[in-house]
């Protein structure tokens, strides 16, 4: 019994800390939206959302962890309900809950959904129970297909965005030029006689390794870097995190 109590206590502490973090983040987001809505940028808001989503994940992780006793089996009973404002309660909840009266109890100690939602839920559950196996499978397949399509659309859009970002940033390296220059300095190529270094056009967005003046059959492998790879690090796309 005591062990369980201790476990419950620990669980409650963990949940409390996670919830506090989450609450703080939401509070910050609200503050910013209220005060700085003129200068606020979408990426900053997305940052906050990402943070909040992370916090929620943490919370859910704690809830799903094995060490947690079955909290379902525990109930919270209101011991004192009064219509007067309670200063202690106000302090603890930062002024959000001024009193604990008959209206507050069902809101805060709720364990079931709203009646309307319960009813809608029930309708869906009935429908599902009435469906037979085949139709259910078809529905499941259709559902999966739709999800796959959505994923595909997102992926291809992201790639398009990537390529856009690349082509917008001008490539700064012409692969093969290093070899040309070093052949000139170290070996004297292109410096004697009429031979000139080849001049591959810069419009080539996909430079091949043989862009340089290679002799037949010589592939400088370790020395080639493609532009796409090099520009990828420069992409400041908001979703590339």
């Amino acid at each position: 019994m005591e062990k369980e109590d201790k476990q419950v206590d620990q669980a409650v502490d963990a949940l409390l800390s996670r919830t506090t973090d989450l609450k703080n983040n939401i509070q910050q987001l609200i503050l910013r939206l209220e005060n700085e809505y003129e200068t606020l940028q979408w990426p900053a808001v997305l940052d906050y959302f990402a943070l909040i989503s992370g916090q929620m994940n943490n919370l859910l992780k704690v809830l799903r962890s094995d060490k947690l006793p079955k909290l379902r089996n525990r109930i919270i009973l209101p011991l004192l309900v009064s219509p007067d404002p309670d200063p202690d309660l106000q302090r603890v909840t930062d002024g959000r809950v001024p009193l604990f009266n008959h209206q507050a109890v069902p809101d805060y100690l709720r364990t079931l959904c709203d009646p309307e939602i319960e009813a809608a839920d029930q309708v869906i559950l009935n429908k599902a129970a009435q469906m037979n196996g085949d139709a259910a499978q078809k529905l499941i397949a259709a559902h999966n297909r739709i999800c796959q399509n959505a994923c595909e659309i997102i992926r291809s859009t992201r790639e398009d965005w990537d390529v856009d970002a690349t082509s917008r940033v001008a490539p700064s390296i012409m692969s093969g030029d290093t070899i040309v220059l070093l052949s000139a300095i170290c070996g004297g190529r292109y410096l004697r006689g009429p031979e000139r270094a080849p001049n591959p056009s810069l419009g080539n967005s996909c430079p091949k390794p043989m862009g340089g003046p290679m002799g037949p059959g010589k592939m400088p492998t370790a020395t080639v870097r493609t532009n796409i790879k090099s520009a990828r690090g420069m992409s400041s796309h908001p979703y590339m995190r």
Binding site: S172, I179, S183, C186, R189, P220
Partner: peptide, 18 residues
């Protein structure tokens, strides 16, 4: 200096020297 410039060890033996 990346990705502006890729400084690396170029194999001089592979330079096509006339």
């Amino acid at each position: 200096l990346r990705p502006l410039v890729e400084l690396e060890k170029v194999d001089h033996a592979r330079l096509h020297v006339s």
